Amino acid sequence: MCPPLATRSLPASVPRAAWPSRWTSSATATARRSKTVVVAFLPFGRAQQKGTVGLPGALFRVRRPLLAVLATMLLVAGGCVAEESPQRPPGGMDGTGDCAPPSGLAVESATVSYVNDGDTVRLSNGDRVRLVGIDTPEIGRDGAADEPYAREAQQALRALLAESENRVRVIDATEGEDRYGRRLSYLYLPDGRSIQAQLLDRGMAMAVFVAPNLELADCLLTRERAARDDDLGIWSLSAYDPGLPSANGIPEQVQGAAIVRGRVESVGESRRNIWINLEGRVAVRVDKADLERFPGWDFEALEGETLRARGWIVHHSNRYQDWFIPVDSAHALERLN
């Protein structure tokens, strides 16, 4: 038996028999009926176990002359199942409307041993994992107060994990580690539901966009909009919707990611960056190297308009601004005019 390809082995893994069909890819079974061979392929495949009923899949018939080709395919598979996410368009939804696993990235089984907050967990092997693509309110540290909905987000994540006895599927993003040594990953429950999407559905998180980890950007933003429209969780707070007014500056207690809105007073340019200067000495910084991720955007035309931006606040005072938000994807900007 050859090992799964592009995977890691963790101590507490989900048995193959419990995997949803979407996680694997292999041909399943052949059966002879007179002069016709019936071949069943499960959705995205998995080896059918003796004594079990195969999942519904694409069932088709082939004539005997093709039997040799099919036999070769099965031999190449050799009983090995590549534990790799199925090939789907990046950021797309699957047939259930959930955020499909990103294509071409390795998948592994794991068990969560501790929930730090709404977007960070520790695995049983000691790895710390930051849920990529979302940000939840911060739990207060060193005597600081919790941000609104911080504990609710933590509890929502715990409740989701409890549904599977803390078992998850882990898919590391394209850039798989942050500056703190945490893995940047998408988490899925064994039944295939995206944990990031589930938190967004409940209004416990906002979507954030940091290249190159934009695999699910479109889908996560869609899930967030539904919660925002219903004023769920954090979206009942003005700091999130419509966002912090830049005219008042950024409150000192704001740390990490935020949503800021304001009128564009000017648009400037330096050797490396484009600077969108909002009222209140708040700027949005776009690296020129990232301009391909802003198709159709004419930044100079933004002057006088109201812009909403999201990202991590950087406190940096100079002659032009006191705060700026670096953005590297058009997903992080919204014209409100």
Rank of each mutant, 00 (worst) to 15 (best):
residue 53 V to M: 14
residue 255 Q to V: 12
residue 152 E to P: 00
residue 25 S to G: 13
residue 120 T to F: 07
residue 85 S to M: 14
residue 73 M to T: 14
residue 96 T to C: 04
residue 311 G to V: 01
residue 173 A to K: 05
residue 167 R to I: 05
residue 249 G to L: 07
residue 334 E to H: 14
residue 76 V to P: 02
residue 165 E to Q: 13
residue 265 E to L: 15
residue 71 A to T: 14
residue 79 G to W: 09
residue 290 D to Y: 01
residue 57 G to P: 10
residue 54 G to W: 00
residue 123 L to D: 00
residue 6 A to M: 14
residue 302 L to P: 01
residue 187 L to Y: 05
residue 179 R to H: 14
residue 211 A to T: 10
residue 11 P to G: 12
residue 194 S to M: 02
residue 35 K to P: 05
residue 302 L to V: 02
residue 28 T to Y: 02
residue 64 R to N: 10
residue 43 P to E: 12
residue 46 R to N: 03
residue 256 G to V: 04
residue 115 V to N: 06
residue 162 A to H: 11
residue 171 I to D: 04
residue 189 L to G: 02
residue 78 G to A: 10
residue 22 R to I: 11
residue 120 T to H: 05
residue 76 V to K: 01
residue 69 V to M: 14
residue 310 R to I: 00
residue 258 A to D: 00
residue 11 P to F: 11
residue 302 L to T: 05
residue 246 S to C: 01
residue 218 D to V: 03
residue 12 A to W: 08
residue 132 V to Q: 10
residue 292 E to Q: 12
residue 249 G to I: 03
residue 294 F to H: 02
residue 52 T to Q: 12
residue 275 W to I: 11
residue 97 G to C: 08
residue 77 A to M: 06
residue 197 A to Y: 06
residue 193 R to M: 10
residue 113 S to P: 00
residue 290 D to P: 01
residue 221 L to H: 13
residue 183 R to K: 14
residue 114 Y to C: 02
residue 87 Q to N: 14
residue 224 E to F: 01
residue 226 A to H: 05
residue 78 G to Y: 03
residue 139 I to R: 11
residue 198 Q to I: 00
residue 258 A to H: 03
residue 329 S to W: 06
residue 205 A to L: 06
residue 98 D to T: 00
residue 17 A to E: 15
residue 16 R to L: 07
residue 50 K to H: 11
residue 149 Y to P: 01
residue 166 N to R: 11
residue 294 F to K: 00
residue 100 A to W: 05
residue 298 D to C: 03
residue 96 T to Y: 12
residue 70 L to K: 06
residue 115 V to K: 02
residue 224 E to N: 08
residue 95 G to N: 11
residue 47 A to Q: 11
residue 48 Q to M: 01
residue 312 W to I: 09
residue 129 V to C: 04
residue 48 Q to H: 00
residue 286 V to D: 04
residue 53 V to Q: 15
residue 131 L to I: 06
residue 311 G to H: 01
residue 114 Y to I: 03
residue 267 V to H: 02
residue 231 D to C: 04
residue 25 S to N: 10
residue 192 G to E: 13
residue 336 L to I: 12
residue 272 R to D: 15
residue 102 P to R: 07
residue 90 P to R: 08
residue 166 N to I: 05
residue 21 S to Q: 08
residue 40 A to I: 12
residue 151 R to D: 05
residue 53 V to F: 06
residue 319 R to D: 09
residue 184 L to T: 02
residue 66 L to N: 10
residue 310 R to K: 07
residue 85 S to R: 13
residue 153 A to P: 03
residue 273 N to L: 14
residue 232 L to C: 08
residue 80 C to Y: 00
residue 172 D to F: 01
